[in-house]
Design a protein around this nucleic acid. Structure first.
Lengths: 139, 139
DNA sequence: ATAGTAATAAGAATGATTCTAAATTGACGT
DNA sequence: ACGTCAATTTAGAATCATTCTTATTACTAT
């Protein structure tokens, strides 16, 4: 007895975000990332959304993640050359990689801090993206 | 007419740095990085030192780079998931990746700035390493 | 010199990601 | 509803930086 053609699941996701059409696959990828704050890898996303979409392929997960990143709906986070991780937090922030547990924590900047203020940039530099990653341990 | 068993080339490199025995291969890798400020990849190092060591293998270049990084003689720099690059500048600094030319510039911090001062870190955090990477264009 | 350890070489293996080609889906005008 | 065209998805192959394996070579200390 659905009242419309859309199946309504846990979270409603609009048909379009930032100009990107939210297909069923993109919705599942995005929904999972919104609920998971652990910065999952593409493979972890894949395994998880297979519950809802048993026929989804890993290539599609990569496609979806790339589309979501390109449209600034999520962020891609890289630690050294480990598999990329994905993050739905769009606020400007860094990432702390706790070596003992392997967990990743979002790191906010203290209020009033502007990253470009403290960097000695060459003149006429247009910054498109900043990434700050920290590695260490939570003693 | 060598006065000792060591061949003396362009730059003298000590037999040991930070507890790492500087083999011929490690010397060549290190010497090249010291002269090149372009943040070369392992493959670029490989191609270049082949002039001095025609029989060197790529695996050895990787081994040398890893040893040098581990002993804090050079730094490894990663941009997204591109091939790792290597940097002999040990001062705390970030990297700016100019998208138009593909070049990488070291970015110093303005004097008196302490990175951990501006980050809202969880209590009892021991930071082992910080990496700051910027992407954009030199207009 | 000899033994033991570390480093190197060559090539195979790994693994995250991207590519390719075919099939499916969706949007839109009729 | 129907057809058309573009976008998306799928499955599997391909890519490519890096790591691993094994044999050989080079050092170090006895």
């Amino acid at each position: 007895m659905t009242t419309n053609g859309l199946q309504h699941r846990q979270t409603e996701i609009p048909e379009e975000i930032n100009g990107l059409r939210m297909t069923r696959q993109r919705q599942e990828v995005y929904r999972f990332l919104m609920g998971e704050r652990t910065h999952p890898t593409a493979n972890e996303v894949f395994i998880s959304i297979k519950e809802a979409l048993p026929h989804v392929s890993l290539a599609t997960v990569y496609n979806c993640l790339e589309a979501l990143v390109q449209h600034k709906i999520i962020r891609q986070v890289n630690f050294d050359r480990e598999p990329s991780r994905y993050c739905p937090n769009l606020d400007e922030h860094g990432h702390f990689h706790d070596e003992t547990t392997g967990t990743i924590h979002d790191i906010k900047f203290k209020p009033g801090i502007n990253l470009t203020d403290i960097l000695d940039l060459p003149p006429n530099t247009v910054i498109k993206d900043i990434e700050i990653t920290l590695r260490g341990q939570l003693a």
